[in-house]
């Protein structure tokens, strides 16, 4: 576990940088929707500027966990929560927290591409517009920069006013990535972002995620263990609503401390 790393005391302002190792810290998080909890007593830290893969069988609570980090579960009927999620030492559940501001800092990309019914250009800058981050010229610059970043600019530069729905699934997902990056998040949550993509695009996405660090902290739910090994600095293994094991990827895969983990990463369960 990452507890070996000593952290600065929380709540001393939010200076990014070396003064603090962990951008996100989860304490005793229990989440459920009516009935039994989906997730029980999760303690976890996310070191700044790293990629953490969340792995585990279907129904293990990874996605619920991910969606708790930007409070996407808030509106789900019956949702309840115990425990804390601290972003730079501040609770994201504190009464004064602005959801919109939180989600500006904690971006999210979904399993399936979900472009808006706007032009490609407007898709990329939809968040920029909503948060009022840039004027017209600025938005165009941002759109170009982000499309270049995700490797779509060459293909789409002359099609910015077209509908995103004519793009291939892979291009749509890259567009959604560009859209999430355009508002400059500190943390990017990805929920199986490549599970519906072709191998070439998967590689492009993985490359992109590697390049995003250390500027951005990436948390990615994946069913693809090879992908976790390829890109993640840290890996957290969830099973049946519990965090079973967390540590550097090489150790979790090579020398897991829990029997469950060992069985999962060697393909014997899940």
């Amino acid at each position: 576990m990452g507890s070996a790393l000593e952290e600065a005391a929380p709540a001393d302002g939010r200076q990014p940088g070396a003064s603090r190792h962990h951008v996100l810290r989860i304490r005793g998080l229990t989440v459920g929707f009516k009935g039994d909890p989906v997730l029980t007593g999760v303690d976890l830290v996310f070191p700044r500027g790293t990629i953490t893969a969340l792995i585990g069988p279907t129904g293990s609570g990874k996605s619920t966990f991910l969606r708790t980090l930007n409070r996407m579960n808030d509106r789900v009927p019956g949702y309840y929560r115990k425990g804390e999620v601290e972003l730079d030492g501040q609770s994201i559940f504190a009464p004064g927290v602005q959801l919109m501001a939180l989600r500006r800092r904690v971006g999210m990309v979904f399993q399936r591409p979900n472009p808006f019914p706007l032009s490609i250009m407007e898709n990329v800058v939809a968040g920029v517009r909503a948060h009022g981050l840039a004027d017209r010229a600025g938005r165009r610059r941002i759109a170009e920069a982000r499309l270049r970043e995700v490797g779509l600019w060459g293909a789409l530069a002359h099609r910015l006013n077209e509908s995103p729905f004519r793009l291939s699934g892979g291009q749509q997902q890259l567009l959604c990535l560009a859209r999430a990056l355009a508002i400059g998040p500190d943390i990017l949550l990805l929920d199986e972002p490549t599970s519906s993509l072709d191998p070439v695009t998967v590689e492009a996405v993985e490359d992109l995620l590697r390049r995003l660090t250390p500027a951005i902290t990436v948390i990615v739910v994946t069913h693809n263990l090879a992908q976790a090994k390829r890109i993640a600095h840290f890996t957290a293994f969830f099973n049946q609503g519990r965090l079973v094991e967390h540590g550097p990827t090489a150790r979790v895969f090579g020398d897991p401390s829990a029997e469950e983990t060992s069985r999962y990463v060697t393909g014997r369960i899940g």
Partner: peptide, 29 residues
């Protein structure tokens, strides 16, 4: 209107009104 794009807009930090204006209404324009 599918939930996924609306969810994507919410995750971008849009308010309910902005989700309606930028996603839901254009979807059914």
């Amino acid at each position: 209107v599918p939930a996924l794009p609306k969810e994507g807009a919410t995750a971008l930090g849009m308010s309910d009104w902005e989700v309606s204006r930028r996603v839901t209404l254009p979807w059914v324009a």
